[in-house]
Design a protein around this nucleic acid. Sequence first.
DNA 1: GACATATCTAAAGCC
DNA 2: TAGATATGTC
Length: 734
Amino acid sequence: MNKYDTLNEKQREACFCTEGPLLLLAGAGSGKTRVLTHRIAYILENNLAKPWEIMAITFTNKASKEMAERVESLLGECSQVFVSTFHSACMRFLRRDIDKLGFSKSFTIYDTTDSKKVIKDIVKNNNLDKQAYKEAAVLSEISKAKNLLMSPDDYYNAYASEHRKRKIAEIYEQYQKELKKNNALDFGDLLYYMVKLFESEPDVLAHYQNKFKYILVDEYQDTNMIQFKIVNMLAKKHKNLCVVGDDDQSIYKFRGADITNILSFEKYYPSARVIKLEQNYRSTKNILDAANAVIKGNTYRKAKRLWTENPVGEKISFYNLPDEKQEARVIVELVGANLQAGYKYKDQSVLYRTNAQSRVIEERLFNQGIPYKILGGTNFYQRKEIKDFIAYLRLINEPKDDVAFDRIINYPKRGIGASTVNQVKDYAIKHEMSLFEVLEMIDEIDEFTDRNKKKLGEFAELIRTFAEEAKGMDSLEDFAADIVDRVGFYDELHKEKDKAEEKIANVRELIGKFKEYDDTAEEISLTGFLEDIALISDVDGYDEDADYVTLMTLHSAKGLEFPLVYMPGMEDGLFPSYMSINEGDEQVEEERRLCYVGITRAQEKLVMLSVKNRFLNGNTSYNPVSRFIEEIPDELLDVKSAKRSAQSYSARQKVKERKPTPYKSYYKAAKKDVKPAKEIDLKVGDFVMHKKYEVGEILEIRPAGADYELSVNFTSVGLKKIMANLSGVKKIDF
DNA sequence: GACATATCTAAAGCC
DNA sequence: TAGATATGTC
């Protein structure tokens, strides 16, 4: 028996069909990763290609790593297959040849925050209305354009009749100029310039075309036009292109994913073979039936029906609860119950539509002392203190990086205020220089006061010294620790009242990552490290061995599986979201696919929850149960009543049951209607809530000048006075 | 002009 | 809730 005997017939067919274009339609849980890895092994074992002549594109770095490992374990040896994401592959190719496009090879990669900053400055400098040209919206237009391979000119011409789009085209143009000046690329540029480079340098393209004899693309349903183009360019010579995907799992339209890439693969490659993998090995029958029932609601899809030989399993539990706190409570109770039943924490995962939903659940898990990990949200590398520190490394690595410069020129505070910085910026714009270049010659510029010259000169000197040291560096950890010391990073964080300890701990953790890098990297370089972290995705932080409950968005969960899945927030308006409902059927279909992805993550048990009143993002919404729940046949659902689950109340929770009015609502209500405070429904005897845990009873309300003074007896801290007026709560003495 | 504090505003999904 | 902006103080 050889390794291929463990595959089913269809899987084997896909595995051995190595020559020519192949479309592999692989339903959820149908073992496509197994097929891909076996296919690579087969190609290698039969000497059809050398390892480095195979390119496999995955969706996340984590998936790349896994695939490489699995190929290695199949072959029992270290292989050098080129497994990478689109973005990392392009980054690596561009590192080699980007000088041909006028960038230098030490280019920086800007993340969304950096990009927004650049756009914001452009909008400001052009005296445009910042409300009409919000950074996020403009950036999304720009990246859409890039994903369609449209230059600023193309974009301008395509939308010449629309005023707003003409303006955006202008911003786009300046944005590209600014990035080039900073020697920086954003995420979209990695792909965009890749195509540009291939187009303008046929030799470079030919090199890769010759090199990669076999190309595999995973999660093909989520590729966009430009990625399709890159794949086509690379596969043009050998045409051994195998794409794997499931149109029902296409969930990234918002970032340009083009579902037609998969739906019309056969049109582009008329000779393409199509193989469908429809047997699911992951989920129980009930779970799969529910998934099939939901996805049936979509019209634009390839006909297929997943089936399984797995047991029927339990019905899908559905809870409709009063509010998000109850929802969190039920989830956490079930986590505990399932732990008793023999499941581990790591077998259980909470998947939600929006990151904001994680907070309540996190609080509850935290309260109950259950180990958990939240993926995404504020990514570790997005935290302010981390970004600030990384900005030092970025500026040291590439002094032209104006965004990094701007972050740290006065952080930690060194007496260089906003107006001085603006002066530097004005000078830089006038003379077309980078900010750091201005500093390099600050002594010769008369406009600056002696004091500022000194301060700015000192900063420039500091960065120069570090850059000098970076050259001969053999430990990034030591280097970073040195920067922290000399810059006084911890001292600065100590001064910040809010979560100073946590921030310092984060920076220490970062230093720990430098150590890790020192230990694992083949060659230690600043560029190398910055490269590694620039393209990290949320799921890259997921560790399936560690025993904790995992919380993440449905988007992040793609490609993962868990014995137990909880899906909170099954409400129309949240999932599917208002936006998608307003935008029409096509958007709702995308949400439906997202729901399908969620359901099919579950192997054994699936719990779905919705609530009647949800307090989210500062206001309460009353949403009906999600249409996706309605689409699941009754016989598959086990509708649980809220009361039954609410057995184990502690005394403290009973207090909470009396529905304390959050201050926030009070504030809102008072402000919206501008009613006299008396008419606001806060009265003596009501319970109010402060922040997360403090619940208290109002003992007295009395006028105090224009304001009101409330005496509140808090359960934990006792009697406190709270000042309130028409515009809300003024002061809380804790 | 730098820094501290008060006030306002807006909120999806991701490499 | 946080981040940006407006206002106040030295």
